[in-house]
C-alpha cells in the first residue's frame, strides 16, 4: 500500500469549531481530532489521539474540553475526558493522572486547502 493510500480524509478545518474535537472513522478505528486555537486567534494546529477513553471504556474523548495545564515538563495541551475528567496530552497521548490510562496518538496533517487527514496504522 502506498503512503498516500494510508491517509484517511477526516473533514475540512472549518468543520471543527475552534477548540473542540470531532471523532473520525479511520479504518475500523476511532480517532479523536482536535483543532486548537489560542485566545488571540492564532491557530496552534490539529492533534489526533484515540477516541477510546481507556478509563471509561467508551468512545468519548473527542467530546472532552480542551485546556492547557502546567506540569513539571511545562505547559501541556490536554483534553479532559467528559466521563471521569482524566487529562490526556494532545501531543503524546499520555494521561496526566495515571500512565495506565494513556492512549495512542495518530499522524495527522492539515493541507493548505484546510483538508485534514489522519494516517491509518
Amino acid at each position: 500500500m502506498t503512503d498516500a493510500a494510508r491517509w484517511t480524509f477526516v473533514c475540512h478545518r472549518d468543520d471543527i469549531v475552534p477548540n473542540t474535537g470531532v471523532a473520525a472513522k479511520v479504518g475500523a478505528a476511532q480517532v479523536a481530532v482536535f483543532r486548537v486555537v489560542a485566545p488571540d486567534g492564532t491557530e496552534d494546529g490539529i492533534f489526533a489521539i484515540d477516541n477510546f477513553d481507556v478509563r471509561a471504556q467508551a468512545n468519548v474523548l473527542s467530546r472532552g474540553l480542551i485546556g492547557e495545564l502546567t506540569t513539571e515538563q511545562g505547559p501541556v495541551l490536554v483534553v479532559a475526558s467528559p466521563i471521569y475528567k482524566n487529562h490526556l496530552c494532545l501531543k503524546t497521548g499520555r494521561c496526566l493522572e495515571d500512565e495506565a490510562w494513556s492512549v495512542k496518538t495518530w499522524a495527522v496533517r492539515c493541507g493548505d486547502d484546510g483538508t485534514i487527514m489522519v494516517r491509518g496504522s
Binding site: T8, F9, V22, A23, A24, K25, F52, A58, N59
Partner: peptide, 12 residues
C-alpha cells in the same frame, strides 16, 4: 458520532 461517516459507535 463520526465527522466522516454516518455510522454509529459500534462500542455502544
Amino acid at each position: 458520532h463520526f465527522v466522516n461517516a454516518a455510522d454509529a459507535d459500534s462500542n455502544i
